[in-house]
Structures are given as structure tokens and as C-alpha cells.
């Protein structure tokens, strides 16, 4: 009876989400709340996840495998590679613009997908989770800026 009203038990999906930097600071209970909003999808190596210019409706986290982020039609020279635990597709979700690059599976991979409506709903309704996710997103972008600055400095 009491088990019915308790939090659902942690699933393998929750355990894999916990390895993602975006969700790393969430408590087990918060992770379970986020887990109910995540769709698990499987892609084969070479399969396109989204195209450059698409309307961005979801944010992706890599649960296993690797994903290449590349310019449309130039999959041989990826801009970045996202490994397990990494995050992509967040830019279009945050600024509401079209996808800035194509995402393509490098290996057979499993992805956790959170839809725009669920993401914004969660950010509006749960202050604690919203605070933690916002901070982790800010850290994610700080990392990108640092890497770009380092690359610029290293360039001749």
C-alpha cells in the first residue's frame, strides 16, 4: 500500500542519467522525476539524429555510444564528438532557433531525449531541479567557451 505512493525504484535509465554531467548534481529523487520525462531511443551508426536547420524540439543526452556534431553534408569532419554522458541539441532548445548543426550517430548508440515542453515545464515547476540544471548548463557553456579560447590561442 505504502509502496504505491513511494518514489519509483531507480531503473537502469536513472543510473545512466546520473553519469551525465547535466544531471550529475540531482538527488536520486530528483533524478527519478527527470527520468519520467526522458524517452530512450536507439540509433544505428551513421543514422541522422537531426539535421542542421531543423526546428529544435528536444534536448539529447548520450547514454551509450558516440554522436558526431557536424556541418550538413560534411559528416567526415565533425565539429565535435559527444561521448556517453554528454549533451547535445540544447542550443536550439534554449534560444528557440533552428538546429545549428547536424547530429549523426558515430556508433550504435542509446540516447535519452527530453522534449521541449517537458523540459520547460520542469524548469518552471520545480525550482530546485531548475536551479541545478541551469547551473550545469552554464558550466557546460563555460567549458565550450574555455575550449574555444584555448583553440584560438593555440592557432598560429
Amino acid at each position: 500500500m505504502f509502496r504505491l505512493f513511494a518514489s519509483p525504484p531507480a531503473s537502469p535509465l536513472h543510473a545512466r542519467l546520473a553519469t551525465s554531467p547535466l544531471f550529475a548534481t540531482l538527488s536520486p529523487r530528483e533524478l527519478r522525476i527527470v527520468g519520467t520525462l526522458i524517452h530512450e531511443r536507439h540509433y544505428l551508426a551513421g543514422e541522422v539524429i537531426f539535421d542542421q536547420g531543423d526546428e529544435g524540439q528536444a534536448i539529447y543526452t548520450v547514454l551509450s555510444g558516440r554522436v558526431a556534431i557536424c556541418r550538413q553534408g560534411d559528416s567526415g569532419n565533425p565539429i565535435a564528438t559527444v561521448a556517453a554522458g554528454g549533451l547535445f541539441g540544447e542550443l536550439a532548445l534554449i534560444d528557440g532557433g533552428p538546429r545549428s548543426a547536424q547530429a549523426r550517430a558515430l556508433d550504435d548508440c542509446a540516447l535519452g531525449v527530453m522534449f521541449r515542453g517537458d523540459f520547460t515545464g520542469l524548469m518552471t515547476a520545480h525550482a530546485a531541479i531548475a536551479g541545478k540544471l541551469s547551473f550545469q548548463l552554464a558550466r557546460h557553456y563555460a567549458g565550450i567557451i574555455r575550449r574555444q579560447a584555448a583553440a584560438t590561442e593555440a592557432a598560429p
Binding site: H39, R41, Y43, E47, V48, F50, E55, A58, F115, G117
Partner: peptide
């Protein structure tokens, strides 16, 4: 209700997945 929505979304091929999520969200909204 949420299981039904997930069941529908899982049945959709990857290429159409984001658009299907958008459809379900628009219907629900």
C-alpha cells in the same frame, strides 16, 4: 495517460520522432 503517450512515441521511427513529440504535445495542450 502518460504510458499511452510513451507507447505511441515509442512506435514512431527515429526520423519522425521529434515531430511526433511535437504533435502529442500540441494535441495535449
Amino acid at each position: 495517460g502518460w504510458r499511452f503517450r510513451r507507447f505511441l512515441a515509442n512506435a514512431v521511427p527515429n526520423a519522425f520522432f521529434e515531430r511526433t513529440l511535437l504533435l502529442l504535445d500540441r494535441l495535449d495542450r
